[in-house]
Amino acid sequence: MDEARRARLTDWLRAASGDPTLVIEKMALLSGGAIQQNWAVDVSDGRAWVLRTDNAATLAVSHGRAQEFALLRAAFAAGVTVPEPLFLCEDAAVTGAPFFLMRRVAGTAAAHRVVKSETLGGGREACVRALGRELARIHTIRPPRVDLAFLGEPPVDACRAFVADQRAALDRQRTPRPVLEWGLRHLERTAPPPVPVTLCHNDFRTGNIMLDEQGVTAVLDWEFSLWGDPHADLGWLCAKCWRFGSDAQEAGGIGPRAALYEGYGEVDDARVRWWELGAHIRWASIAVDQAERHISGVERNLELALTGHMVPGLEWEILRMVEARDAE
């Protein structure tokens, strides 16, 4: 961030915080996602903040900064362990893009480290029990909510809405995907009846949850949240494709499924399994889209290119899951 932007940011923060003597002591780019940039901002009087803003190329399905800020506020108020949201700036003239600030939280989210650790999050069982409690708190947020109006009308039947949304996503893609269609048709045939919808984080998985040795320090990455079936979040976390090679630990590669369910409260396991198949289909479709950004030239990038080659492995898993479920 150049001097002029930093000066404008300082002025804006002084007004937002009501502290006319505020000084930015240090700014450093943290390892951000493909979509956002996160900056560590050290502010006078020992205040440690994070500034979150958009990258140039943004996925159409993700929420903007203002929406993410509203979600963070709702989650914080519901007792979810999230970084406290501080200030939102929707004026792109300050730094070049909308941004918000939140309190900086310590911990690690790196998936491959998390699944290997016996102690992070307070140990495997304690950690997934805590993750169950976090999800239960997220799912206390229910429609209607004026502050979350941007999420749109809640679906009457979240399972059927998921199938329809995934088919629409496939219809937007360049190449037909018979295996993903096979999985979606199975989901359509076996969809459970609707349940009352709640807020779903919709990307609640290892890698997006920050931990220290004591427990969960932050649930991150709220940009895909929507009104849906709460079991979708449990299914996304438990899906084999998000266990990062630690397959025996069914809750996110971190700990046992039973402990997650205990932490959560009442769980309909059959619904969770339905959503686990859905998770593989959704991730495969996202992977296709990410690779397409590379292939189309929108963003030439080796990581995006390799993500496309994850699709066949996910398809193989989808075929095995459908086969096993049809044999039941």
Partner: peptide
């Protein structure tokens, strides 16, 4: 579907 996915995995995801 099994056969074509197996062939795709041989290149992309043998694991």
């Amino acid at each position: 579907l099994d056969d074509l996915t197996r062939a795709r995995c041989v290149v992309s995801a043998p694991r």
